[in-house]
């Protein structure tokens, strides 16, 4: 009997698979964890340590000193930072950066440069929802800048204006409201929406003075006064002003936008159809009246 069972078992073993990791069972009554935790604490701390801001991801606000009288309140207040979180912001683009964009073929300097061409480089990000109202041109690289350009920025210092005009170029400072800026961020996306190009709004009361100042090359300033100011600046910095009238690229240098216009050559109220390559222009009198003023 016994030998028969052994033989049967042995003959059965011949057809059974070999013992391997996939067909062995755990020890009876052994503890089986259903999760394999990673890391030092079995994954329960998610790499954020024990207790406090680090674990709860609620870091203290800037300037808070855990109950102390904070540094920024310890002394009499400094009013020049009043309402700083509500002010318009013009993030900088230096002349050297602009030169690099042109040399890397990101910007075509034989055509007028504006905020759209700077954003279209893909190397510059503007965030209008964080109160960034366009770019300011800074003077880094003012000594080496030697290109004749027609540029429109939102803010520029006197040195920058002098550097561009010395090279034979033209600079304008112009204001764009939030809706216009949103259209300019990604023009392809905007045209695909099938929405008419909005009209550009006038600057707010605290900015209107800047944008109608000929010394700042504001877009609302009188052109005659601007040409006067160009001469004044040339005398101040001691360079001879190149004559734009005799320049071969006169048309490019004198191309300007209307104060109501967002894009060069495209009027407010027009709808651009990218698929059919057509431009839809409103003919309704009421609409025309709305977009005209």
């Amino acid at each position: 009997m016994g030998s028969n069972t052994t033989e049967k078992a042995l003959s059965m073993l011949r057809f059974l698979p070999r013992v391997c990791l996939s067909n062995i069972r755990p020890h009876p009554n052994s503890r089986i964890r259903d999760k394999r935790g990673r890391g030092q604490h079995g994954g329960d701390k998610h790499g954020c340590g024990n207790k406090g801001s680090g674990q709860r991801q609620n870091y203290m606000r800037l300037g808070y000193e855990t109950g102390n009288n904070p540094f920024y309140l310890r002394f009499p207040h400094e009013p020049y930072y009043q309402r700083h979180h509500l002010r318009r912001e013009y993030p900088p683009v230096s002349l050297l950066q602009l030169l690099k964009f042109i040399e890397l073929n990101r910007i075509d300097h034989t055509k007028p440069i504006d905020l759209v061409s700077v954003v279209n480089t893909g190397l510059y990000k503007l965030l209008p929802d964080q109160r960034q109202y366009g770019i300011q041109l800074t003077d880094e690289g003012a000594d080496v800048f030697n290109l004749k350009i027609n540029i429109e920025v939102q803010y520029a210092t006197e040195v920058v204006i002098a550097a561009i005009e010395k090279a034979g170029g033209v600079i304008t400072t112009a204001y764009y409201d939030q809706h216009s800026l949103q259209c300019m961020l990604n023009t392809k996306k905007f045209f695909e929406r099938g929405v008419p190009i909005p009209k550009r709004m006038m600057p707010p009361p605290d900015a209107i003075e800047y944008y109608s100042d000929p010394a700042k090359r504001g877009y609302l300033a009188d052109p005659d006064k601007i040409s006067e100011e160009r001469l004044v600046l040339a005398q101040k910095y001691g360079y001879s002003l190149p004559e734009i009238e005799k320049d071969p690229s006169y048309d490019m240098l004198t191309e300007r936008k209307d104060p109501r216009q967002i894009f060069y050559g495209l009027h407010p109220g027009w709808v651009v159809n990218l698929r059919d390559k057509a431009i839809l222009k409103p003919q309704d009198e009421e609409l025309l009246k709305y977009y005209a003023n």
């Binding site: 042109i102 040399e103 890397l104 073929n105 990101r106 055509k111 759209v116 061409s117 954003v119 279209n120 893909g122 990604n186 023009t187 392809k188 045209f191 894009f263 060069y264 050559g265 495209l266 709808v271 651009v272 159809n273 990218l274 059919d276 390559k277 057509a278 431009i279 839809l280 222009k281 409103p282 003919q283 309704d284 609409l287």
Partner: peptide, 29 residues
């Protein structure tokens, strides 16, 4: 019901092409 005019003028379309973002990174000059 609003009256509009669909135009296909190449001179005007040049302005549209000018402001469309490029799809490729251009080679440096």
């Amino acid at each position: 019901s609003t009256k509009y005019e669909a135009t296909k003028i190449p001179e005007e379309w040049k302005y549209v092409e000018r402001i469309l973002p490029p799809t490729l990174v251009p080679e440096p000059q």
